[in-house]
């Protein structure tokens, strides 16, 4: 297929960026979107131009490193799909495609389509863990918990940290990301001891990083590659209020 691409180019964080236009022909439909960008980069190099910088690593939808706005949607037109799992069969001959970085005050642009998501790491560092050091663990089967609990905790823990939830949110809120980790830990007996303190610290860090508030638009759940439920945001709010009332 034949495509017209408009891609955001920005030398570095401090410089001004702009959309640049490129044309591609003979793109097969079983090519992935990122392989299409690989091909475009090869052509740019032949013309002596700097390649388009974008992040990707595992290219199987699990590492969370890829991600860009494609035609205004985080990770492109499909629901629950990372950019690397988007194939060209989702487009048709003659299409015009716009590719931009995920945009949020907390995710500064590094170069072209690459962004800095280290704010997520700092939210985890604020309390997204069980405080257990190597060597302290009791026998694994000594604390049984229900099959359903394990499955529900897994649903929350499946987050890949890609940032699509933030990118798609009109407020650039990290509530889904933070809520998922709080829920994962709060559901498990191992994580429950620290729930109140964890929730307060993670929420405080989220605000410090300049993520916006959640206003329950629920767009994040639609884009999330792991289909993380917005109910985790409700859970976070519940835990936060509980902590504020009972643990001050």
């Amino acid at each position: 297929m034949k495509l017209t691409l408009h891609i955001w180019r920005q030398e570095q964080g401090a410089s001004t960026g702009a959309m640049h236009t490129y044309a591609l022909t003979d793109i097969p439909e079983d090519m992935s979107f990122l392989e299409m960008l690989d091909l475009l980069n090869e052509q740019l190099m032949k013309q002596g131009e700097r390649v388009i910088e974008f992040d990707s690593d595992c290219r199987e939808g699990i590492c969370g490193q890829c991600g860009m706005m494609i035609n205004g949607r985080a990770h492109g037109p499909l629901k629950h799909t990372t950019t690397c799992q988007l194939y060209m069969r989702s487009f048709k001959d003659g299409d015009t495609i716009y590719a931009e970085p995920f945009r949020a005050a907390a995710f500064p642009v590094v170069c072209d389509l690459k962004i800095d998501r280290s704010a997520f790491d700092r939210i985890i560092g604020a309390g997204g863990y069980v405080s257990v050091s190597t060597g302290q663990a009791p026998e694994a089967n000594s604390i049984p918990y229900a099959h359903e609990t394990a499955e529900a905790a897994f649903d929350a823990a499946a987050c890949i940290g890609c940032g699509a939830c933030v990118a798609t949110c009109k407020n650039s809120s990290a509530a889904l990301f933070t809520g998922a980790k709080i829920t994962h830990m709060a559901l498990l007996p191992q994580g429950q001891t620290e729930t109140a303190a964890r929730t307060q610290k993670m929420v405080a860090q989220m605000h410090k990083e300049h993520f916006g508030h959640c206003t329950n638009t629920e767009a994040c759940e639609v884009e999330c590659p792991q289909q993380i439920s917005v109910l985790h945001i409700a859970r976070m709010n519940y835990e936060y209020n509980k902590a504020s009332l009972l643990h001050k």
Partner: peptide, 20 residues
């Protein structure tokens, strides 16, 4: 290792009785 991972909150699959 299984003890360590479970203590960290790794949600391994469980049977209906709650055991791994």
């Amino acid at each position: 290792l299984i003890d360590q991972a479970v203590a960290q909150g790794v949600p391994f699959a469980r049977e209906y009785g709650g055991y791994l």
